[in-house]
Write a protein that binds this DNA or RNA. Structure first.
Lengths: 150, 150
DNA sequence: ACTGTAATTGATAATCATTTTCATTTAGTG
DNA sequence: CACTAAATGAAAATGATTATCAATTACAGT
C-alpha cells in the first residue's frame, strides 16, 4: 500500500485521532521529502508556510504516527532520531557514521524470525529496527577522517 | 571470545587508549551487570566505590568502547541508549515497550546480508542494530495499559 | 625508578532534545 | 449548531549530551 496524505488521515481517523491541519502539515512535510527528517527539520519546513505550528506539535504528531506505525524511525549515531513515511514498502537502513548519509534497502524479510521470537518469548511483537552502520564509499576515499584512520 | 575486563583492557591498549582506573571501573560495572545499563546507571553504580568519577567520564568511556565495538548499544523506545558488553557472543534484542524489559536473542546471522549490502552499496560496514519491539507476556496480561487498549 | 608528553580527567557551564503544564482552541459527532 | 473530548501553543522544566580548560596521570622511553 502506498501511504499518501489521504491514506494517513484515514488511518488517524480510524484510530480515533483527529486530522488537524497541523498534523496534515507534518505528514505532508515528511511525505514530500526524500530524506529522513528530524523533528527539528520538520518544524523548519513547516514553519515557512505555517508559522503558528510549534515544535511541540511536531513531536506530538510524530508520536502518534509512530504509534500507528505510519512512520519509520531511524536511529542514527546522532543524538536524535529522524523519520520517513513507511513507504513505498517496509525497508531498512544503511547509515554512514561519518557523513550521515542514509541508504534504504529492502529485500530482507524478518517475518519468520519475528514469528519464532514471538513464539519463544511470548511477546506480541509490533515493530523492529534493522540498521547497518559503516562508512560510505565517498567517506572511505576521504583521507584524514576518523574512520579512514583505522 | 569472552570479553573480560582483562581482554577489554588489552583491546584498549592495542588501539592506543590508556587503561585508566576510571575506564576499568566503567568496564567492571557493565561486566558485572546482567542488565543493559544507561550512562546514568553506570555512573550511579560506580559512584558508590569511586566518588571521584564523573558522569562525563562515563560518557567518554562508553564512546571509546562503542568505537571499538566492545559494547553493544541498545536503542529502546526510551530517551537514552543503554549498554552491555558484546558477550558472550553477538546478540540482538527484543524490548517490551511498556515495561522496558529486554530479552537477548542469538541465532540470527546477518553476515550474508551484510556482505550483499557492502557489495551493492560500496559501504564498509562495521556494525548493525537489530531490535524487535513489542509487548511482553506480563504486560499483555495487565489490563488498562496503553498496549492492552488496542 | 624517573621523566616527559600526550592522553585523560573533573568541574562547570553550555547546548540540544524532549516533556510537562495549563489555559485556549478546535475537529468532528450528534 | 452546539458540545465535548482531543489537540494546540507558549513557556518553562527536565533530561541527556557535549564543549571548555586547567590539572592530573598512564605509560613509553630512558
Amino acid at each position: 500500500m502506498k501511504l499518501t496524505e489521504k491514506t494517513i488521515v484515514a488511518a488517524l481517523r480510524r484510530n480515533g485521532y483527529k486530522a488537524t491541519p497541523q498534523r496534515r502539515a507534518v505528514i505532508r512535510a515528511i511525505a514530500n521529502s526524500i530524506d529522513h527528517l528530524t523533528p527539528a527539520d520538520i518544524y523548519d519546513r513547516i514553519h515557512l508556510d505555517h508559522p503558528g505550528i510549534g515544535l511541540v506539535t511536531v513531536y506530538r504528531t510524530l508520536e502518534v504516527l509512530a504509534t500507528l506505525n505510519l512512520v519509520c524511525e531511524l536511529h542514527t549515531g546522532t543524538n536524535c532520531p529522524s523519520y520517513t513515511l513507511s513507504i513505498p514498502q517496509h525497508h531498512h537502513h544503511l547509515v554512514c557514521s561519518d557523513c550521515g548519509k542514509v541508504v534504504d534497502f529492502t529485500g530482507h524479510n524478518l517475518t519468520e524470525l519475528e514469528e519464532r521470537l514471538a513464539r519463544e518469548s511470548g511477546f506480541r511483537i509490533n515493530n523492529h529496527i534493522l540498521e547497518f552502520t559503516g562508512c560510505c564509499r565517498t567517506c572511505q576515499e576521504m583521507p584524514g577522517t576518523a574512520s579512514a584512520a583505522r
